[in-house]
Amino acid sequence: MLNKLFGRSAAVPGQVYGAPGAGASVFISISTAISLLVIWSIVTYFGWVKPLFLPSPAAVYNKFIVGMTDGIANATLIEHTVASLTRVFSAFFLALLTAVPVGIMMGVNRVARGLFDPVIEFYRPLPPLAYLPLVIIWFGIGEFPKIFLIYLAIFAPMAIAARAGVKSVSMEQIHAAYSMGGSNRQIVWYVILKSALPEIFTGMRIGIGVGWSTLVAAEMVASDRGLGFMVLNAAQYLASDTVIMGIIIIGFFAFVFDALIRYIEKAMVPWKGKV
């Protein structure tokens, strides 16, 4: 049984040996999630950890019902969720429209690389909280600075991933396209961009993860609703059930969107890992 779960998968037609890590892991993932939930329930049921530090699953679920009906921190849970989703997805799609072209230009043009690379590499390692005060000074405390802060956090990994994708294109493909009379624009669009798609999708997945992690910092800027604001507000009153509920909701949406990106990548880049 253990060998079936954790051992090497059987070879698929056309292969002599099964590839390392091949095979579905959905059953293992579901089993892990259920095991963690059971352990959490046991620990809280017997009082091994005080509710202040770790509330029971039932307490978190009850807080979820309260948030959906009566609301938390002067807004319902749906209002908090919609506010956060709007900020994260607005920043993500804005970064997608700008970071990918910039990354491709950095990969194919030395002037663009010289212009953008120092700026991106300088601010990329900085935590968003480091330049949050500057964003407030520049743009105030409205809705735009929240989206802009998340946008900056997403932009760097997406641009770097797009550039890495351009650099991964084999010169043989480019030379073959030139030999068949392809123009520079056609080579960028039909050869370089398509070959860079796997790295671009990887950058998208990293970027949306960074965006969700920056959400809490962004909603520190004079917010009155949002999941990050709700978690921070609950932490001030030691409401750990609300904090854990907010963490679970943020993780759920981050997981769903990551799964959606992987699904789109599988549809658009069917050759990934096969060539």
Rank of each mutant, 00 (worst) to 15 (best):
A222C: 04
I160T: 13
L97N: 02
M245W: 06
P270Q: 09
A22Y: 11
R8H: 05
G103I: 13
S9T: 14
T44Y: 10
I154Q: 06
P198C: 05
I206K: 05
I208S: 00
F6W: 11
P13Q: 11
P55A: 07
T202Y: 06
T202Q: 02
V243T: 01
T32F: 13
V119T: 13
V82C: 04
F148M: 04
A239W: 01
T214K: 02
K266V: 06
N74C: 00
V38S: 05
L2M: 14
L96C: 11
L85C: 12
T81P: 01
P13D: 12
A59H: 07
P198H: 04
W48C: 05
I206E: 08
I120F: 11
W138A: 14
A235F: 00
A218G: 09
W212D: 01
A24M: 08
V16C: 02
I250Y: 08
V166L: 02
N3K: 09
I147A: 08
T32E: 07
S9P: 03
L126R: 07
N74A: 13
P127S: 15
S90W: 01
W138E: 04
S179H: 05
L193S: 06
S35Q: 05
D117T: 14
A22C: 08
F64Q: 01
V100C: 08
M268A: 15
K50E: 15
R110S: 14
P101N: 09
S168K: 08
I154P: 00
V216P: 01
F92H: 01
L238D: 01
P20R: 12
D224R: 13
V221K: 06
A217E: 07
S213N: 07
V243N: 00
A159F: 08
L36Y: 14
W212N: 01
G207E: 04
K266N: 15
F148D: 05
L94S: 03
I137Y: 09
A222N: 12
L54Y: 11
I248L: 15
F6M: 05
Y190R: 15
W212A: 02
I264R: 04
K167D: 15
L77G: 06
R225V: 07
S240E: 03
I261P: 01
T202C: 03
Y45G: 02
